[in-house]
Structures are given as structure tokens and as C-alpha cells.
């Protein structure tokens, strides 16, 4: 299907020579503009699934098609594809030796061939939107967790990605900072960004997701619209999980 921007086909990821089966035949697709939220118990393979989508983890089996191209193919230039797949990590992973502005302009300048001025203009506009204009010349260590994660999001946006991947973006935050990050993500979703979000924030899933995927033991157990997953889950495994987290 051409409307699918990402398609995971029979994804399999085994660690330690097969001892750990993190992913066991995952099939999933993401349409352009869709917000897909992935939920499931810890260790169920959510991160592995997400990281296989941009090949931070190389799957041991199956394929990932991005914009119709098989990026698990050895001949695919993964660096080029990754430019269009922004990723936000649980622990921010800002570059501590660079200012916020440098964090945001490094990739556009080095990889997209933008001029420093061009890249800075875009970075500043994005900073403005997340309310952090005054921190442009600060270093990451001078920011709060919530600020760091907002910066991490706009750093990825500086590359004009087609898709944004989020791996538990609020899990490392103090509770009072979760809201400001979710707010930025909601705005992004409203603007039509294609997003795959691994999170434990069920409120966000309910409100923003077009589709919720529930994973357990390296497999997709159930997926569907949030209303269906949260109100009328079909699988006992899903009900059991939701009973614990809701």
C-alpha cells in the first residue's frame, strides 16, 4: 500500500544468539499523518520494535519498508533514510558539549548542506514555538528535564523528518514536567506529523492516538482505535495490562 509510510513485515529480533527473543514476527504499518501509540508491559519489545524501524537495532529477520523502500536491504543507505526519521529518546541524549543552538544546527548543516544562518533561523523559529528561545545559547546541563526533552524534539524536527519516533519520552521526567513535553507532542500531532510513540501515558494515547498497538512478549497482541482498545479490548492479555495501568 502506497499510503503506508512505514511497514514492518514479520520483524524478528533475537539477542544473544537467540536466547532472548525481543521481537517475534511483528507486522505493523504506519500511514502518513497517523499517530500510532505503542503500549505494553516492560520488556515486551516496544523499544526494540521502535528502534528496528530506523535500524538502531538491526532486525535478525523480516523487513522494514520506509516510503516503500526496504531499508533492511544491505544496499540501502540507512543514513539517508534516518534523516527523515526523527527520534526522541527516554534520556534525551542531547550533546552536552554543544549549546542548544549547536545541538539543533549540527545535523542540518553537516547533512543537509544548509548554511549556518539558514539552520539557525529554523532552529530559532522552533525554539520560539516550544517557548525556549531564551535558552538558545545555554548548554544542556543548564536545562531542566522537561526543557531538555523539548529541545530533543525540536532538534529532530530541524531535519524536517517525515516521521517522528518517540521512545518513552516522558518516563525519565519529574511528574510536573511531563505535561510540557506532552503538550509539544500534541501540537506536533495536530499539525499532521506522522508519529510512532512508545509511552505509558494512557491519557495521551486516548486523546491523540489514531491507533493503539498493544505488545506483549515480542508480539503485537492487539491493535485498534484507542476507544476500542481502552473500552473494549478483545484479548485477555490486553485487559490484564490495562487493569494494571489505568
Amino acid at each position: 500500500m502506497s499510503a503506508d509510510i512505514i511497514q514492518a513485515i514479520n520483524l524478528e529480533k533475537h539477542f544473544n544468539g537467540g536466547d532472548i527473543k525481543a521481537l517475534n514476527g511483528v507486522n505493523a504499518s504506519v500511514k502518513k499523518g497517523e499517530v500510532v501509540v505503542v503500549i505494553g508491559p516492560s520488556g515486551s519489545g516496544k523499544s526494540t520494535f521502535l528502534r528496528c524501524l530506523n535500524l538502531l537495532e538491526v532486525p535478525t529477520g523480516g523487513q522494514v519498508l520506509f516510503e516503500g523502500v526496504d531499508i533492511t536491504d544491505k544496499r540501502a543507505d540507512i543514513n539517508l533514510h534516518r534523516q527523515k526519521m526523527g527520534m526522541v529518546f527516554q534520556h534525551f541524549n542531547l550533546f552536552p558539549h554543544m549549546t542548544i543552538l549547536k545541538n539543533m544546527t549540527l545535523a542540518p548543516v553537516k547533512l543537509l548542506g544548509k548554511s549556518q544562518a539558514e539552520a539557525e533561523a529554523k532552529a530559532k523559529a522552533l525554539l520560539e514555538r516550544v517557548g525556549l528561545s531564551d535558552r538558545a545559547n545555554a548548554y544542556p546541563s543548564q536545562l531542566s528535564g522537561g526543557q531538555k526533552q523539548r529541545i530533543a524534539i525540536v532538534r529532530a524536527l530541524c531535519m524536517d523528518p517525515e516521521v517522528m519516533l518517540f521512545d518513552e519520552p516522558t518516563s525519565a521526567l519529574d511528574p510536573e514536567m511531563v505535561g510540557e513535553v506532552l503538550e509539544v507532542m500534541k501540537e506536533l500531532a495536530k499539525e499532521g506529523m506522522t508519529m510512532v510513540v512508545v509511552t505509558h501515558e494512557m491519557g495521551f494515547a486516548r486523546e491523540m492516538a489514531d491507533r493503539v498497538i498493544f505488545m506483549a512478549e515480542g508480539k503485537i497482541v492487539e491493535e485498534g482505535a484507542p476507544e476500542k482498545i481502552f473500552s473494549a479490548p478483545e484479548q485477555a492479555r490486553t485487559r490484564e495490562f490495562l487493569a494494571k495501568v489505568l
Binding site: N79, Q83, M87, L106, K110
Partner: peptide, 18 residues
């Protein structure tokens, strides 16, 4: 150096060497 630094760089599209 934290592994997340390499992952962040790679996820932006930088190669290993860059």
C-alpha cells in the same frame, strides 16, 4: 561516553565516523 550519544547522532543521519 554514554551509548545514547552515538544513538542520537546516528538517528539524526550521521554515519558512524561522522
Amino acid at each position: 561516553i554514554d551509548e545514547g550519544q552515538m544513538e542520537a547522532g546516528r538517528s539524526l543521519g550521521f554515519g558512524y565516523v561522522a
